[in-house]
Design a binder for these strands. Structure first.
Lengths: 258, 258
DNA sequence: CCGATGCTACGGCCGTCGCCGTAGCGTTCC
DNA sequence: GGAACGCTACGGCGACGGCCGTAGCATCGG
């Protein structure tokens, strides 16, 4: 029997480590904190406490644990402590879990309004996701601007031209080992969008030029009219069906970098 | 202040769902079970109990929970119940966590011997990972046999020829939506290997032809001499540094499909 | 048909951990 | 310098959940 072949070593290779990490993410309060940090911004302990729905003391404890597990980083600034995800790997792992979370109960979709906006366009750590992210991905793909590369995509000559037209240097971080552009599975659409240095730089540029602005109180973002025009002109075939326009009052006043 | 912008909606979008999934994976016993199932095979409750280091009754409870969370599937066969991962998404999510688990404690590397073999060559759900998987990925990449495609890679004409030479039909599941070939981040090497239908078919073929055989008692696999010869001849540039050869006694006698 | 086997259901024990109270340290503002 | 603020440290309370005992239901073998 194949049974007995398995019954001889007490295994436990990396299982326990895996459990530690998952356990850290497995508490509702901590999960909410991590989820909130997935937009790549840094938040204070108090904000995170409120988001998690617990008292600051409790949040402090959770944050300490997350720090110990190397899931988050802290940047001390005066009497404030800004917490952010430790890196893109953390965001990737969380996205992986979200795919499951959306799959599992099948019918447990996101709550109406906010959910719809999140599916439409949002940030995923440092790049765009949702239908906006997918629209960009698909347009580049369909136009033949992407080539296979070490662990992801590379830009073809025409792709580089597009990034230059948008004011970005496609070769800026070419020396880095990790792929500048790679696919990232979208938990809401179950289709890939673009992650990596270049995708982050693109998102950054879009905020800078106000082609995309942050929605208040969530990771959702809004493609502005100007943004739609610019992307449509620069990126042939770009499609991103707009919902009803969002009043400027709902936009985040300050990008709030940290 | 950006603070107050965040302090107005009681959030909790998909956070709780995320926490549920992570909590499921966050128990050592369950994590060990999932880890063991990551080779894509189906194991019985008893085997999983032993692997997790708990009594069968306890394991039964854990398995019920994992079932409810849609992380695993069961195939009833007589008085045996074979459990397996619910799908590739689960394996992907677990790999994402393993990347973190290997990162976080930095120095907490895998235990010597078994760890070394796992890093060398292993299965990741249904395809090859470790340096073997990376070797295949890199050879195809370097030879220009991969092109960017919807959510991953597609084979170029030369790539298809290679797969045909190995006895596979590269267009078999072309109608499927998901990419036939996509990069999957390797937790031990932190570099991509190939996942997807075609990668799974390749692995299957390799076992069938005894180019690769399963190591007893672990997810590690062994590239046979014949396999090395075949892959080397068919896949120009294929490199996979061998450790000392493994005695046939340590090989798994039966593929043990379910 | 009877016993052995594989697995699940239920119940009680106990540890772990999330929670917030109070208390204390450092920073900022007036 | 004093008060307000942001955050962390510690301690006790309470509950969730993992553990295995016994018990019960199916299947397979003789």
């Amino acid at each position: 029997m194949a049974h007995h072949a398995i019954m001889s070593t007490p295994n436990l290779y990396s299982g326990p480590y895996l459990a530690e990490i998952a356990h850290l993410m497995g508490d509702p309060a901590r999960a909410n904190m991590l989820h909130a940090l997935m937009d790549g911004r840094a938040l204070t302990a108090k904000e995170l406490a409120w988001i998690a729905g617990v008292a600051p003391q409790t949040a402090s404890g959770h944050l300490a644990k997350l720090m110990q597990g190397k899931l988050i980083d802290v940047a001390v600034q005066g009497r404030h402590r800004y917490y952010r995800l430790a890196g893109p790997e953390v965001a990737t792992a969380l996205e992986g879990l979200m795919v499951l979370a959306n799959l599992d109960g099948t019918s447990r979709r996101l709550p109406s309004r906010v959910g719809a906006e999140l599916s439409q366009a949002r940030t995923c750590y440092d790049h765009f996701a949702g239908r906006l992210g997918i629209g960009i991905h698909d347009a580049l793909m369909a136009g033949g601007h992407l080539a296979a590369s070490e662990g992801g995509y590379a830009l073809t000559a025409s792709g580089k031209a597009i990034f230059r037209a948008l004011g970005l240097d496609p070769d800026a971080s070419a020396r880095s080992r990790r792929a500048a552009l790679r696919p990232c599975l979208d938990w809401s659409e179950r289709r890939p969008h673009l992650a990596g240095h270049l995708a982050a730089a693109l998102a950054c540029r879009c905020f800078e030029m106000d082609w995309v602005s942050r929605r208040k109180d969530s990771r959702a973002v809004i493609l502005t009219e100007e943004g739609r025009a610019v992307l449509g002109a620069t990126l042939p075939g770009f499609r991103c069906d707009a919902p009803e326009p969002v009043s400027p009052a709902l936009r985040e006043p300050v990008p709030a970098l940290a």
